[in-house]
């Protein structure tokens, strides 16, 4: 069972602020005070402060990549190439990606956006997957990329809560990467820093 901790829980109030700000509704005094205390969240972030959709775009792109990862693990798990303990691992990691996707989609909705949906078909290089290690290496590459992708997303968020939530996912992807490398017989933690 996945322990359901929602890293985006802090956004309950955020989405309300966004909704009020974006809808042109008359703001209550309380809402104005709330917004005023967060005057320059976007300062210094490329992509400009007056672009309320910027965070939603970043979340939706991350969601697209998570949905692909779920499908990739399904291909790995269904390949018949994984032996029992590794198969369990693949399914567990797939579960984590499902949890990420769920919370990302929820957050996009809360911010007034439309979450991207999974594609009917993903072009995976299945012809290169011939044994368990091929599958593990393929998954490791995706997880390593995911760490970098979240790392690249964190400084772009206008809302700091979102940056924190993305970092929480980043930590999980990094654990996946390390465990997959270990399973491949590689140094699980090859560097002190990720880039």
């Amino acid at each position: 069972m996945i322990n359901q901790v929602n890293p985006f829980a802090a956004l309950e109030t955020l989405s309300r602020r966004r909704f009020l700000a974006g809808s042109g509704a008359t703001l209550s005094a309380a809402a104005i005070a709330l917004l005023a205390r967060r005057p320059a969240l976007a300062a210094g972030t490329p992509g400009s402060a007056d672009d309320p959709q910027a965070d939603t775009r970043i979340l939706n792109t991350a969601l697209g990549a998570e949905l692909e990862a779920i499908a990739a693990y399904a291909v790995g798990a269904g390949s018949g190439l994984l032996q029992k303990p590794v198969l369990d691992l693949a399914l567990q990691f797939q579960g984590h990606h499902k949890a990420h996707a769920e919370v990302l989609a929820q957050t996009v909705r809360k911010l007034g956006g439309t979450p991207v949906e999974a594609r009917a078909h993903y072009p995976f290089p299945t012809e290169t997957l011939k044994n368990q290690n091929d599958v593990l290496a393929f998954a490791a590459g995706l997880e390593r990329g995911a760490v970098s992708a979240y790392l690249g997303a964190v400084p772009l968020f206008h809302e700091r809560e979102l940056a924190g939530a993305a970092a929480s996912i980043l930590g999980d992807e990094a654990m996946h990467w390390a465990v997959l490398r270990q399973a491949l017989g590689q140094d699980p933690v090859p560097a002190a820093f990720m880039s």
Partner: peptide, 10 residues
């Protein structure tokens, strides 16, 4: 490219 969906700092 302001407005790009490539949510990656660079």
């Amino acid at each position: 490219v302001p407005g790009t969906t490539m949510g990656y700092a660079g």
